[in-house]
Design a protein around this nucleic acid. Structure first.
Lengths: 158, 158
DNA sequence: TATTGTTATACTCTATAACTATA
DNA sequence: TATAGTTATAGAGTATAACAATA
């Protein structure tokens, strides 16, 4: 009963047909499922997945250019602008326009941003090491590994 | 160059830190990646993933109740109402309120809806059997299998 | 009272294109 | 001319709560 947020109907025996083997369909539903668990575990900490991943990546790449960040996170340029401004307004992120190329924006975590991430790192870590219902720990690791391959992260850098 | 829709920056060597092993993060990016391929392959056919999966499931479950459909597809009741009305306006779906329980709505594909799905089934099938760049066919199947486990579809019905 | 679906509202995310300033 | 970022606008998707009809 903790599986779905809104399980007012028994969706048990529904025939999915070809969707049952569709990677796109399974990825979509799988993401919803995992995010459900994510919000259950981390919602109280006031972190939304998208924004938090932006903070983590900036934290690991001080001075990263906004466009590079957007490309890596598959966020559109027009959208990342809004996200970054939001984080800047909260005092979590610092923008800097370097003299070498005054078109680009370099991003860094502020003291407050570093603290914000640090405070939530443990909860995120705990969640990431939890095992989804119905899977073994080994299967979870295998899933993570295959997703890394799908995304071309297998032997790339951390 | 076919990988990302908007690759205006070399997002190559970005450090992801703990995100690299985060199931939620990987599922989110993975879904975006797969949907990118999906739109590239099936966009011309005028199918959006969400709506199309609704049609396929109704096709495989004639007379399915709206609430059951929503629960299975993890769509909120308030949202499925709009989706179904849109499909009804296009003449693809038929709604029926049975006399046994006049609260519920039973959904069926119209002739036109059946044709719509049939016309696109082959393209979908071809896409679902394609292998994402960087993966072997075996790895793709393994990924599908693990996602089915994550979603509790392993031994359930079709 | 509980259930099913609907309506209304607001917010997030995405998509697109036009714009600026810099190179 | 090309690039990096911004702005504006529209649309899709989602979340929430209040509501009507029916059970």
């Amino acid at each position: 009963m903790a599986a779905t947020l809104e399980r007012e109907s028994p969706a048990a025996d529904v025939h999915l047909g070809e969707l049952r083997d569709s990677l796109g369909f399974l990825m979509r539903l799988g993401q919803l499922r995992v995010f459900e668990d994510y919000f259950e575990a981390l919602g109280p900490y006031g972190m939304r997945p998208g924004e938090f991943s932006v903070l983590v990546v900036i934290g690991h790449n001080p001075g990263i250019r906004q466009g590079v960040l957007a490309a890596r996170l598959m966020i559109k340029r027009a959208h990342i602008t809004k996200v970054i401004r939001g984080l800047e307004d909260q005092g979590l992120v610092t923008r800097r326009i370097p003299d070498e190329d005054r078109r680009v924006v370099e991003l860094t975590l502020s003291r407050k941003g570093q603290a914000f991430v640090a405070e939530r790192a443990e909860a995120l870590h705990a969640f990431d090491f939890s095992v989804p219902a119905g899977m073994t720990c080994k299967e979870r690791d295998q899933l993570v590994h295959l997703l890394q391959k799908l995304l071309g992260l297998s032997k790339g850098d951390t």
